[in-house]
């Protein structure tokens, strides 16, 4: 299943936001966890980190991820402490290692992506055409399961190494 389907499913799901709020919550819980785990399977170039031992997870806009991602705050990823940052505009992505662009920020997607390309950021989104647009990892829904797809090219452009293991799990790899 591709991420597109996943997204559609997710839309369908999300449309009944209110009744599936919980479901949405659950979904974004999963995504948050996935996001956190993605970091475990990605290699950043050494100089892409700041002087401290943090790994910045940036969340763009407003989404349910914002709250769920908070759970990840302080966890360790390959020895680094996860730090969650809220990003409202694309120019704030500097210093982020991971950027999540929810589908709510779809409008600013290309801006974020562009901005992200100036830096070494792992871009993760759950838009339907995330990866087609140049995003690196896109979530999608399939059979009620959150799945993802990976744009390896994009990652490779930005010198991000994505583990084969992860790649194996992904739907589509470019």
């Amino acid at each position: 299943m591709n991420l597109f389907h996943l997204l559609i499913v997710m839309f369908v799901l999300i449309i009944p936001v209110t009744e599936s709020g919980a479901a949405a919550e659950a979904e974004y819980q999963v995504k948050a966890a996935m996001l956190y785990n993605f970091a475990k399977f990605v290699e950043w170039p050494a100089d892409s980190f700041g002087s401290d031992s943090r790994i910045i997870f940036c969340v763009a806009g407003k989404s349910p991820l914002n709250s769920t991602i908070q759970q990840m705050q302080g966890k360790q990823v390959k020895g680094r402490t996860v730090s969650i940052r809220q990003v409202s505009r694309p120019d704030e992505v500097a210093g982020c290692q991971v950027l999540f662009i929810p589908h709510s920020e779809n409008i600013r997607l290309s801006a974020y992506l562009q901005q992200a390309n100036h830096n070494v950021v792992l871009t993760v989104g759950d838009q339907e055409r995330f990866t087609a647009s140049g995003g690196m990892i896109g979530f999608y829904e399939e059979e009620n399961k959150v799945r993802f797809e990976i744009n390896l090219e994009a990652a490779q452009k930005r010198h991000l190494q994505i583990s084969s293991h992860l790649l194996n799990l992904a739907r589509r790899v470019r």
């Binding site: 996935m34 785990n37 475990k40 399977f41 583990s163 293991h165 992860l166 194996n168 799990l169």
Partner: peptide
């Protein structure tokens, strides 16, 4: 190792 990803992603 190989299955770590699958397990973490519950795949």
């Amino acid at each position: 190792r190989n299955t770590s990803a699958a397990i973490i992603f519950s795949d």
